[in-house]
């Protein structure tokens, strides 16, 4: 049986299996059709139906089940997650698993299209070490992402000394809804 105790391992393996057979386009369609439109229909219902409140409900449940260490900052104009230890990427690091070049892209691969449907945009960075932050805002809110500490205070993952070292590289997104909206390296926040 394919179990879910090690789900993130065979999920990541599957990205590469698809990439080798249909390229990046097939991997994107997998995230969109299989994950966003099929597996995560419960997330769609909550977030399209309830907006920020639905985000809080969804991630409170799912991150609670998956484990990890994170903080949520819920405001009327923004929903923010500071992920200090991602249970998903953490599983891969812990077990030395890497087939696909950037596992972390899968999150925006399904969350991006969902946010677009729900009327939100995403500001996001991940450091490929199991740490990331997300700031969802309404699409008509043109304000920039917060600076470190502004929205989540001491919980802001960008304040960790290991957030960005000489060996880490950040992937950054600004008002994004697509996994390929990644900013060029020099345009990242570099916080």
């Amino acid at each position: 049986m394919i179990g879910i105790y090690d789900f993130c391992g065979h999920y990541e393996w599957t990205f590469q299996w698809l990439q080798e057979r249909g390229g990046h386009g097939l991997v994107r369609r997998y995230w969109h059709e299989a994950i966003h439109e099929d597996a995560q229909i419960h997330a769609n219902e909550l977030i399209i139906g309830k907006g920020f409140a639905g985000m809080e409900e969804y991630w409170d449940h799912t991150l609670g089940e998956e484990g990890g260490v994170w903080d949520v900052t819920a405001r009327e104009d923004a929903f923010r997650i500071d992920m200090h230890h991602c249970p998903s990427k953490g599983f891969l690091i812990h077990n030395g698993l890497q087939q696909y070049p950037d596992y972390c892209d899968h999150c925006l691969g399904w969350i991006g299209p969902l946010m677009k449907k729900a009327g939100f945009v995403v500001n996001h960075e991940h450091n490929h070490c199991g740490q990331c932050w997300w700031e969802m805002k309404r699409v008509d809110d043109l304000s920039p992402a917060s600076v470190p500490g502004e929205l989540s205070g001491e919980a802001d993952v960008r304040l960790h000394p290991d957030w960005q070292t000489a060996d880490t590289h950040l992937d950054s997104y600004e008002r994004a809804t697509d996994p390929d909206d990644k900013l060029p390296p020099a345009a990242g926040s570099g916080h």
């Binding site: 394919i2 789900f7 999920y11 099929d38 089940e65």
Partner: peptide, 12 residues
């Protein structure tokens, strides 16, 4: 493991 992932296995 987190049971929600069974939906992703089936969808995959």
């Amino acid at each position: 493991g987190a049971a929600d992932f069974y939906t992703a296995v089936n969808a995959t």
